[in-house]
Amino acid sequence: MITVTNKNDTGGDVRLTGVSKTYGSFTAVHPLDLTVPQGSFFALLGASGCGKTTTLRMIAGLEDPTTGTVHLGDQDVSHLPPYKRPVNTVFQSYALFPHLDIFENVAFGLRRRGIKSVKKQVEEMLELVQLGEQARKKPHQLSGGQQQRVAVARALINHPKVLLLDEPLGALDLKLRRQMQLELKRIQTEVGITFIHVTHDQEEAMTMADSVAVMNGGRVEQLGAPADLYENPQTTFVANFLGTSNLIEAEVDTISGDDIVLRAGGGKLVLPGTRCSAPTTTGGKVLVGVRPEKISVVPVEDAGEIPVGRNRITGTIADSSFIGVSTQFVVDSPVCPDFEVYVQNIDRDPRLAPGAEVVLHWNPAHTFGLDATQDIDAGVETVEEEAA
């Protein structure tokens, strides 16, 4: 059970207590405790079928929990229909009314509640999403990103305590999606209400959210601030799903003060004890992890210039890819057949080419340790999964 709380104000918190969802013999969401603090931007992140959308739908009232309760602030809404909950949902499809102009799409919720004077509220909301000049256009005359902002404005004008976003940027191309990530974060900061965002896109979650719950198989694997999840993964799934990790099978050699000295591929690596979530006893197994961008690579003839105290691995460059901002190397080494290294393209060394013998080195403080009983490939997306 994982909980994040804000003790100062629970008026708009979203609290799930022991919430689960089963369909016959299939468990979509295992019992889970989760508190989303009022006014935060919270992301539920995971691959298809992990339970994130089912969790969101239980908050919205579109699915009934099999067990547990859903509270919005101090109100138990577990058995309330969606229209009686102080939430609004924005879907990937936007669901705008094609026959109404943008002004009337945004005004729809107010008019439905019998509010006659809507002009001021609608204009303010259109200004918030920077669409004031588009008020009299029809949805088909707007770009995908503009339609998305109309959907957000239409949801926010009802002053919900919580805005639920279900893969809202999935239909946009990459450049527009990145623009909308910043736009949604700006809107959330300005209105100050709780946003709960479901996505399978790691970059999207880490760009926008204050806190991220990484879900896998109907459970929360780890929850925390994006930087903490990335720098300090607690499971192989989180290490592989959030970006790329090099994971090395190693054995504990000695424990020296706050450091753990490990044997791997005939060499030794140092791991700070505070960055190891695995049990450590001499002779025990540990998975050692390091992110590709934390590593430096030099030709083997320059190894004497590497500062003392760095972790080192020797190997042969098997492949390299120039991707503009960086060059990505794949290095074949005794500790790992496909060791990945990302090097910024500042001063490119022409000697670093496939076939070159190299030494990889990094600060031991950037190393993390995981329980070796886990699947080393958990969370690694295959080409087939990405295409699905």
Score class of each variant (00 low, 15 high):
Val220Glu: 04
Val220Ile: 15
Glu221Ile: 06
Glu221Lys: 12
Glu221Val: 09
Gln222Trp: 05
Gln222Leu: 13
Leu223Tyr: 11
Leu223Trp: 07
Gly224Ile: 10
Gly224Asn: 04
Ala225Ser: 08
Ala225Trp: 03
Pro226Leu: 12
Ala227Asp: 12
Asp228His: 06
Asp228Ser: 14
Leu229Tyr: 07
Tyr230Ala: 11
Tyr230Phe: 15
Glu231Cys: 06
Pro233Val: 08
Thr236Ala: 12
Thr236Gln: 04
Phe237Lys: 10
Phe237Asn: 05
Val238Cys: 12
Val238Ser: 12
Val238Gly: 07
Ala239Pro: 10
Ala239Asp: 05
Asn240Val: 13
Phe241Cys: 14
Phe241His: 11
Leu242His: 07
Leu242Pro: 09
Gly243Met: 14
Gly243Ala: 08
Thr244Phe: 12
Ser245Pro: 06
Ser245Val: 08
Asn246Cys: 10
Asn246Gln: 11
Leu247Lys: 01
Leu247Pro: 01
Ile248Asn: 02
Glu249Phe: 00
Glu249Met: 02
Glu251Asp: 05
Val252Asn: 00
Val252Gln: 00
Val252Glu: 00
Val252Met: 00
Val252Trp: 00
Asp253Arg: 14
Thr254Phe: 07
Ile255Leu: 13
Ser256Ala: 11
Ser256Cys: 09
Asp259Thr: 13
Asp259Met: 12
Ile260Pro: 00
Leu262Ser: 08
Arg263Pro: 02
Arg263Tyr: 06
Arg263Trp: 06
Ala264Ser: 12
Gly265Ile: 03
Gly266Ala: 04
Gly267Glu: 11
Leu269Gln: 00
Val270Tyr: 04
Val270Pro: 04
Leu271Glu: 00
Pro272Tyr: 02
Pro272Thr: 03
Pro272Glu: 02
Ser277Arg: 14
Ser277Phe: 10
Ala278Asp: 09
Pro279Asp: 15
Pro279His: 13
Thr280Cys: 14
Thr282Pro: 04
Gly283Phe: 05
Gly283Glu: 03
Gly283Leu: 09
Gly284Glu: 11
Gly284Gln: 08
Gly284Ala: 15
Lys285Tyr: 01
Val286Glu: 00
Val286Gly: 01
Val286Ile: 15
Val286Asp: 01
Leu287Trp: 02
Val288Gly: 01
Val288Ile: 15
Gly289Lys: 00
Gly289Ala: 07
Val290Ser: 07
Val290Asp: 06
Val290Gln: 11
Arg291Asn: 07
Arg291Pro: 04
Pro292Asp: 09
Glu293Thr: 05
Glu293Lys: 09
Ile295Arg: 05
Ile295Asp: 04
Val298Glu: 11
Val298His: 03
Pro299Ile: 06
Pro299His: 11
Val300Thr: 11
Val300Cys: 05
Asp302Tyr: 09
Asp302His: 11
Asp302Met: 10
Ala303Glu: 15
Gly304Tyr: 13
Gly304Trp: 15
Glu305Ala: 14
Glu305Thr: 08
Glu305Met: 07
Pro307Arg: 10
Pro307Leu: 07
Val308Ile: 08
Val308Trp: 09
Val308Thr: 09
Val308His: 09
Gly309Ala: 02
Gly309Gln: 02
Gly309Tyr: 03
Arg310Cys: 10
Arg310Met: 13
Asn311Tyr: 02
Arg312Ala: 02
Arg312Phe: 01
Ile313Phe: 01
Thr314Ser: 13
Thr314His: 08
Thr314Asn: 13
Thr314Leu: 04
Gly315Met: 02
